[in-house]
């Protein structure tokens, strides 16, 4: 099968809307199709990566477990925008996954190099 570079751009916070969750489902499918998958987190999307989600009280599935499965699917290109982290008072220590941090301009270049950019 043809392999293409798929980037999933995540700019929305978790739980307030379903977009982040349903985006993750596509990421796993794309990985199962053996595509070259990366995920970029910027703007409120970085909140998805915050560790310590306790979602019992809102009766919604938490992200962390599924994020944990990413590595099993060989999805290891997890890119985060430095400015979005700083703006929201977060550092990489606050995140549930190992990530690569980039400036916005660097992320722009990575985005430009993709075959398919998906955003939800």
């Amino acid at each position: 099968m043809t392999t293409k570079q798929f980037m999933f751009v995540n700019r929305k916070a978790p739980y307030g809307t379903i977009y982040a969750w349903e985006s993750l489902e596509v990421v796993l499918i794309a990985a199962a199709f053996e595509q070259d998958v990366s995920m970029a987190f910027l703007d409120d999307g970085v909140f998805q990566l915050k560790k310590g989600h306790q979602t019992k009280g809102i009766e919604v599935k938490a992200f962390e477990k599924t994020f944990g499965a990413l590595e099993d699917y060989d999805v290891t290109k997890i890119y985060v925008d430095q400015e979005s982290l700083t703006e929201r008072g977060l550092t990489t220590d606050d995140l549930a996954l190992p990530v690569e941090v980039f400036s916005r301009a660097e992320l722009g270049k990575l985005m430009e190099a993709q075959d398919v950019v998906l955003s939800f």
Binding site: M1, T2, K4, F6, E25, V26, I29, A30, A32, F33, Q35, D115, V116, L118
Partner: peptide, 15 residues
Amino acid sequence: GLGQLVEAGIQSDRL
């Protein structure tokens, strides 16, 4: 299934 979306990404010049 969602595989149809991924396939659309693979098969199309633009998504």
